Every structure is written in C-alpha cells, then in structure tokens.
Amino acid sequence: MVSKQITVALEYGLHSKPAHYFVEKASSFVSDIHVVRHNKIIDAKSYLGLLSLGISNGSVVTVKAEGSDEKEAVEWLTRFLKGEEVLY
C-alpha cells in the first residue's frame, strides 16, 4: 500500500468539474484507491463520495492505493490535488 498526505492547492477546491476528472483518472488505475479526510474514507472512484468530503483549497487529505499501479496512482492524483496536473 502506498499513502501520501497533502494539502490541496486547487483554487476553488474539488468542486464538480475537477472532481469529475479526478474520478475519471482514478478509475483508469487498476489499484483500489481511497481518499481520507477527517477520518472519513471514500472510494476515489466514487464521484458522490468524493464530493461528500467537501474538499476545499487548503484541505489536508490522504490518498491511499493498493494494487499493481499503486505508486503511479498516488503520485498522479496527489499532483492533481496540488494543482500540478491540469486535465480541463
């Protein structure tokens, strides 16, 4: 299992459009991926689950993955949450 805690640096947080792209990218990985915020754990491939975390700019979250491409999954998804990867 690979896990990484980061501070979200998306200007408007993880609202509908970036959440959609996050879930779309998470779904492209084989690994089981979870996002943790305030002890609430959700499946990173669940759009509604992700929105339920209320992730805003400055939120601290942990991305965890377990599977054959876990390292790549955590690396890409945390870069996206830090504003380093732009899909839209």
Rank of each mutant, 00 (worst) to 15 (best):
L10A: 04
L10G: 00
L10K: 00
L10S: 02
E11V: 01
Y12C: 01
Y12S: 08
G13Q: 06
G13K: 03
G13E: 10
L14N: 05
L14T: 03
H15C: 12
H15M: 13
S16F: 05
S16K: 06
S16I: 11
K17G: 02
A19L: 07
A19M: 08
H20K: 15
Y21N: 04
Y21P: 01
Y21V: 02
F22E: 04
F22P: 06
F22Q: 07
F22M: 05
V23L: 06
V23P: 07
E24A: 09
E24D: 12
K25V: 00
K25S: 11
K25N: 14
K25G: 06
A26E: 14
A26N: 10
S27K: 15
S27H: 10
S28Y: 03
F29C: 02
D32R: 14
D32F: 15
I33G: 03
I33P: 01
I33H: 01
H34K: 09
V35H: 00
V35P: 00
V36T: 02
V36M: 10
V36E: 07
R37N: 04
H38K: 13
H38Q: 15
H38A: 13
H38T: 03
H38V: 02
N39H: 12
N39P: 04
N39L: 11
N39K: 14
I41P: 03
I41F: 10
I41W: 11
I41V: 15
I42G: 01
D43R: 07
A44D: 09
K45Q: 10
K45C: 12
K45H: 12
S46G: 10
S46M: 08
S46P: 09
S46W: 00
L48T: 12
G49D: 05
G49C: 06
L50H: 03
L51I: 13
L51Q: 05
S52T: 05
S52W: 13
L53V: 08
I55H: 08
I55R: 03
I55D: 08
S56Y: 11
S56H: 12
S56C: 06
G58A: 06
G58M: 11
G58L: 10
S59C: 12
S59V: 14
V60E: 15
V60M: 13
V61H: 03
V61Q: 08
T62R: 13
T62S: 15
V63E: 05
V63P: 04
V63K: 08
K64E: 11
K64V: 13
A65T: 00
E66A: 14
E66G: 10
E66T: 13
G67Y: 13
G67C: 08
G67H: 05
S68K: 15
S68V: 15
D69Q: 13
E70H: 06
K71G: 02
K71I: 14
A73E: 00
V74E: 06
V74W: 04
E75G: 08
E75Y: 11
E75K: 04
W76C: 05
W76N: 09
L77Q: 02
L77D: 00
L77T: 02
T78G: 08
T78C: 07
T78P: 07
T78S: 10
R79I: 03
F80S: 08
L81I: 04
L81K: 04
K82G: 09
G83I: 15
G83C: 10
G83K: 02
E84F: 08
E84H: 06
